[in-house]
Simulated assay, not measured.
Amino acid sequence: MKALTENGVTVNESVTPVPPTKRNSGFWKSVLQQKYLYLMSLPFVIWVFVFSYVPLWGWLMAFQNYKPIKSFRDQKWVGLKNFKELFHDERFYLVLRNTLAMSGLGLVFGFVVPIIFAVMLNELRGSVFKRTVQTISYLPHFVSWVVVGGIVYKTLAIDGGIVNDLLTHLHIIDEPIQFMAKAKMFWGVVTAADLWKETGWNAIIYLAAITGIDKELYEAAKVDGAGRIKQMFNITLPGIRTTITVLLIMSIGHLIGIGFEKQFQLSNNLVTDYSEVLDIYALKYGIQIGRFSYGTAISMFTSVVSVILLLTANGVMKKFTKESIM
């Protein structure tokens, strides 16, 4: 009961409390309305949980001197010994350099080139030619790195390799270059091979984002006298900015966890100091010689750094572009 005075007259006003709303009612209502969508996604959630979260208990091996013949309870706990050994190993820093160098080149070229390719492909007017180019460009994605490795070796061979033959024919070089035997060229070879294999496939998502741009924007730009170049910079690229931001954040998150397939297939004994990455290091100095705890420590380091990079990139993008993935 509340007393109000207006023009000398006292008026009693009753204040009725508003009942608190149920916070979860909206969520469960949405679940019931979209129950089939949630049921369809349930198998994928289970798959991620089983293969991505359940194995995390294995990280405990990094703090043990793990022996397969003993039960998990009987393992000897060694604390941070494996991590101390890892950070005191000079080979680790060499491998870390290779990983960051190749992932950095892959981030710069492997991220920018598909965007340029998608924008240029979108400018093609012939639908048949456009579909043909797009199909040819993403077919290498379905070729395994075993086959790609053989193609790269044959292409860069000093005897009959098309690259050396072309450079010699154009008088750019006097004698063939042993690309696969020069360690300092390995990073460039891997980056070029990855571009050839994945550019077309990575461009698909940008092409899909471009198709979602309102066509009336292009028509209005034409009326205002904007050419195709101005339309590209003022409509197409801003229209796919969100997609670019999200993929850039995810790419930065994978900066240190680049896998090992292409390096493993293209490497040889002459370029080991430039081809070995963290995953190969974990395989050679961990699993292959039975140091499972040491290999787990390497993989744990990679995962933790990847999460930190992802959160950092997401925070920076959210601050400066107001866009993020979480």
Rank of each mutant, 00 (worst) to 15 (best):
Y36F: 00
F186K: 07
G239S: 11
G253T: 10
G225K: 09
L32G: 03
V223D: 05
I287A: 06
T21E: 13
R228A: 14
G161C: 05
P55C: 03
I162M: 11
N268T: 13
N12A: 09
T272G: 04
Y274P: 00
V119S: 04
K230G: 06
D224Y: 09
K81M: 10
K35S: 10
V189E: 05
L100Y: 08
D74H: 10
D273Q: 14
A192C: 13
L100I: 12
Y93M: 10
F142S: 11
L309H: 06
G253A: 12
E6W: 14
I69V: 12
N98Q: 07
W57Y: 11
G58P: 00
L166K: 08
K76L: 13
Y93V: 08
I289H: 02
Q75K: 06
K182D: 08
L167Y: 03
T168R: 09
L237T: 04
K284M: 02
R23G: 14
M102W: 07
V15I: 15
L217S: 04
I252C: 14
V190Q: 12
T10S: 10
G257A: 15
T99Y: 07
T242H: 14
F92E: 08
E216H: 05
L248M: 14
D159V: 04
D159C: 01
G106I: 07
G253I: 13
T10P: 01
H254R: 15
M317C: 13
K182N: 11
Y53F: 14
W196G: 11
N202T: 04
L311E: 05
V246Q: 11
N202S: 12
L37V: 08
K182W: 01
N202P: 01
T312Y: 03
R73Q: 14
F27G: 03
V143P: 03
K70C: 02
P176Q: 10
W59A: 01
G149E: 12
R228N: 11
L86T: 08
H169C: 03
A157D: 15
S103R: 05
L311T: 03
A62N: 05
L217N: 03
G104S: 09
G257S: 15
L278I: 09
V316L: 13
K81I: 04
K319R: 14
F49K: 00
D214Q: 05
F49G: 02
N122M: 06
L107S: 04
I116K: 00
K318I: 03
W201C: 02
F27W: 13
R131C: 01
N234W: 09
V133Q: 06
I151D: 08
Q134L: 13
E198I: 01
L80D: 07
I249P: 07
E85C: 05
L311A: 12
M61Y: 04
A62Y: 02
V108Y: 05
V271C: 08
G104K: 04
V307M: 12
Y285F: 10
I115D: 02
F117A: 09
M317E: 00
A209K: 09
A3R: 10
Q178D: 11
M120V: 13
Y153S: 11
F72E: 10
I229W: 15
K215R: 07
I115R: 02
Y38P: 04
A220R: 09
I280D: 00
P20H: 08
F260Y: 15
